[in-house]
Amino acid sequence: MSPRAAAPARQFDHQSGQPVEIEGARIYHEIVGQESCKVLIARGEDDHLTPSDAVRRLARRIPDSRLLTIPDAGHVAFQDQPELFLRSLLDFLG
């Protein structure tokens, strides 16, 4: 079964906060939720590129997922808070 591509993913302009289309970026909604392993979804608390409501919706659709919001971090949370991210990842992996 081939996944059907959804509308282009969106990012937000840093200055205006308005959504910006990303040409060629696609989300394959049909395969989300079919994961067969635990999934850690990590986002920075100050991430202005990925809307928090979209991340929460994604986490709800994936069984056995955990949403981690990293304080004082932006879109690249693992770089902004590497120690906290690594500790959280190791805890998640058990």
Rank of each mutant, 00 (worst) to 15 (best):
R87H: 11
R87V: 10
A73N: 03
R87G: 04
V55S: 03
P82M: 12
S52Y: 08
I70S: 03
R87Q: 13
L86S: 12
V20L: 15
E45C: 07
D53G: 03
V20I: 15
F85T: 01
G33A: 14
D72V: 03
F92R: 00
Q15I: 11
I41L: 14
E35M: 15
L86F: 10
D13A: 13
T50G: 10
R4A: 15
G94A: 09
D91H: 08
C37W: 04
H14A: 15
V32D: 02
D64A: 13
V39T: 10
A25P: 00
D47R: 05
H75C: 07
D64E: 13
V55G: 01
I62F: 07
Q81V: 05
L67N: 00
E21N: 08
H29C: 04
S16L: 08
P82A: 13
R66K: 05
D46I: 01
I31L: 11
A42E: 01
K38G: 03
A5M: 09
A42R: 00
L89I: 03
V32F: 09
F78Y: 11
A42Y: 01
E21V: 15
H75P: 02
A77Y: 02
S36T: 14
D47N: 13
F92T: 01
F92P: 00
A59W: 01
P19K: 12
G44R: 03
G94W: 04
I31K: 04
E35T: 13
R57T: 11
L90F: 09
R60L: 12
E23V: 12
E21D: 12
F92H: 02
E45L: 09
E45A: 15
Y28M: 08
L67P: 00
I22Y: 06
H29E: 12
P51H: 15
D53P: 01
G74I: 04
R66D: 01
H48L: 15
F78Q: 05
D72I: 02
D80P: 02
L49I: 06
R87K: 14
R61K: 14
I41D: 01
S2W: 13
L84T: 06
M1H: 09
D53I: 10
S16F: 08
E23K: 08
S88R: 02
A73G: 04
A59T: 03
E23C: 07
A9Y: 05
P82F: 14
R57C: 07
A59G: 02
G24Y: 06
E30Y: 05
S36E: 15
L89M: 08
R4C: 09
G24C: 03
S16V: 07
P8S: 08
Q34M: 12
A25G: 03
A7F: 06
R87W: 05
G17N: 12
V20C: 10
H48A: 11
F12Y: 15
D72E: 13
K38F: 06
